[in-house]
Nucleic acid binder design. Sequence first.
DNA 1: ACTAGTTAGTACGATACCGAACCAATTGCA
DNA 2: TGCAATTGGTTCGGTATCGTACTAACTAGT
Lengths: 157, 157
Amino acid sequence: MTDARPDSGREPDPALYFRLFNEIGILSQLSRAKLETVLPEGLILPHFAVLNHLVRVGDGRTPLEIARAFQVPKTSMSHTLAGLERAGLVRLGPNEKDRRSKRVWIAPEGRDLRERVVGRMGPLLGGFTSAFPPERVAEVLPLLEEMRAWLDAEREV
Amino acid sequence: MTDARPDSGREPDPALYFRLFNEIGILSQLSRAKLETVLPEGLILPHFAVLNHLVRVGDGRTPLEIARAFQVPKTSMSHTLAGLERAGLVRLGPNEKDRRSKRVWIAPEGRDLRERVVGRMGPLLGGFTSAFPPERVAEVLPLLEEMRAWLDAEREV
DNA sequence: ACTAGTTAGTACGATACCGAACCAATTGCA
DNA sequence: TGCAATTGGTTCGGTATCGTACTAACTAGT
């Protein structure tokens, strides 16, 4: 006999969660592609994300701190930072507190570029913000953040 | 003089949308990494996604159709299908309707593997479904789907 | 002080992703 | 029918991503 009570003690349908992660994956892909149309040749989303991070939370961070903030392997961040340095958008200096380590400083060129990109994103976002006004975004954002935090915590077990 | 009415005619704060896409990006990354822990060596998310697609919507599709379903370049899909074929999980046959084209058939091994992976995902999802029951997921999913559809439509302009 | 273990970063190699260029088959149209 | 344009797929090359292995520097315990 199958349990007739709705839901109680049953595994939820995986298909729903499938759809969730599928949508998230495609959204990530589409939004990334979209953003990269306003980045100069040779720069990709991770480059911009790091510049933006440095402006928002302040520079002078170590590469490892930045890698953790984005939850990417340190080797990936190393590569990204090398690209930014080559483009003259950040400078890597020594970390006097720990000589194994380095500190990442954003260059004026990097700050300017980030500003320009943010500016160019405005029009890009235009249609989107009309279709999805802040109230609607605010509806889903907390749950997404909670999911992220959950997966993140789980990851470190 | 600035307009005193709240919101009307004002650009919404970009930071909110930033956060949205940032969360989506990281969620995508984390969920992908998580899923790949239950995939056999050498197979990655796109491989599984294609197998799953073939089971859900039926096989016999052409590579290009599949590429469009996932919104990836056809060269990427070509690569993914080559991997699946090499692993003996799909077969590529001729398309008698159009001899430039091919058809993708899922092999019994592919069907089995997909089944096993879905099974192994159950426990993996366990904690997540407790933390985020179907009702809560159902709360955000429609909006995410709407956003995806919007970005997708926009893309083709 | 010495030594074992840990931590920050890099080098290297394997693979993934994807744009450009290409070939082959099909379609549209004069 | 014949030819241009289009379409499906692959090849090739450049870059991204990331695991493994390494070096240098730090830390803790003796």
